[in-house]
């Protein structure tokens, strides 16, 4: 071999194609009912020696058997490509967007995503499933499953069940798959404490030591305050209006707020503290305050970037887990 270097960490991964071994088939309640009817007709046919009643009974039985294959086929060969979910706050429902790959198959009808296995036999079905949906042949589609996210941290996508009763509702076929996906669950933003006082930024701000120019977004003008850097003064405006104003750039935050667990010591437990911090982070974001955070050994510089907010929330979500 010329190329002895294999791509790193290419581990065999479960192929999510739903094949023969992975598909379970059982009659539905209606299917059992149908089978009983079929048997009753057969008994009647025997009693009355009625050839056509025999024929009806056998035809119904044959339809039942064919329905097994048809229902099976409706699911076989479908692949689950995985799932993904946007972060949610604890107490909300995580929306796992499952991607189903039907590129190899024909049109599939009336699929349902369930979070628990369907009950075979005569028991009633639990009501926690998506509405049935159809999939075009050769298509890739997404279907959403809502999973309750009770507590912060990482919510692993539960084992899902895809089920179909097409075409007759006599038979249900289902298969399990466990998409390798999890959903980041931020702490529920809770707590009554008001946002701590923010600090006005010092002139020693920019860690980079570079003047914000070029690609930094111009944010607005604000009256000059003692301590504002001279290079931020809008000289042209001064020349026109005789007013000392400074340009504000989104990067160059003036208001900075440092949050830490110290500030929420009063709260009873860690979860409540993290919830309070999460709420502050959101509140600060609404007010345009750059938030930094000290969380254990982690230190996050204040920033305005909306992605920064997610970084903070994520840190809160994963703290000490």
């Amino acid at each position: 071999m010329n190329h002895t270097l294999a791509p790193s960490s290419v581990l065999p991964r479960a192929d999510h194609a739903l094949d023969r071994r992975h598909i379970y088939v059982l009659p539905t309640r209606g299917g059992f009912f149908f089978a009983v009817v079929c048997l009753l007709v057969l008994l009647g046919a025997m009693n009355y020696n009625n050839a056509m009643a025999y024929a009806v009974s056998f035809l119904l039985g044959a339809i039942f058997v064919i329905a097994i294959g048809e229902t099976w086929r409706n699911l076989a060969g479908l692949r689950c490509l995985g799932a993904a979910a946007d972060p949610v706050f604890a107490g909300q429902k995580a929306r796992f967007r499952v991607t189903l790959d039907n590129r190899a198959g024909r049109e599939r009808m009336q699929l349902e995503l369930l979070m628990s296995p369907p009950r075979g036999g005569l028991r009633r079905q639990p009501r926690q499933h998506t509405q049935p949906f159809d999939v075009d042949g050769g298509a890739i589609i997404h279907a959403d499953v809502m999973v309750p996210a009770p507590s912060r941290g990482r919510l692993t996508c539960p084992r899902l069940c895809i089920r179909t009763r097409f075409p007759l509702g006599l038979i249900q076929a289902w298969a399990y798959f466990s998409p390798v996906a999890d959903c980041l669950v931020y702490p529920a933003p809770k707590g009554d404490s008001t946002l701590p006082e923010s600090m006005q930024s010092a002139s020693t701000t920019a860690q980079s030591g570079v003047v914000q120019t070029g690609n930094n977004d111009f944010f607005g003008l604000r009256g000059y305050q003692r301590g504002d850097p001279l290079r931020a003064v809008a000289w042209k405006t001064l020349a026109r209006n005789d007013q000392m104003v400074v340009k504000r750039f989104t990067d160059a935050a003036d208001e900075r707020l440092w949050l830490s667990l110290e500030q929420v010591r009063a709260l009873p437990d860690l979860e409540a503290r993290l919830s309070q911090l999460a709420r502050w982070v959101l509140e600060a974001g609404r007010h345009g305050i750059a938030v930094g955070m000290l969380l254990g050994a982690q230190r996050f510089q204040p920033d305005h970037d909306p992605r920064h907010q997610q970084v903070l929330l994520r840190a809160l979500a994963e703290f000490k887990l």
Binding site: H3, P7, S8, S9, V10, L11, R13, L81, D182
Partner: peptide, 30 residues
């Protein structure tokens, strides 16, 4: 497969940031 990690590594963004380092592998395995 050999060249893909070098080509896709800086273009492909994994939905899950923690998986970013393995984005190319995820693609190849999928």
């Amino acid at each position: 497969q050999r060249v893909l990690p070098a080509i896709a590594g800086h273009r492909l963004r994994a939905a899950d940031e923690s998986q970013q380092a393995h984005a190319a592998d995820l693609l190849l395995q999928g």
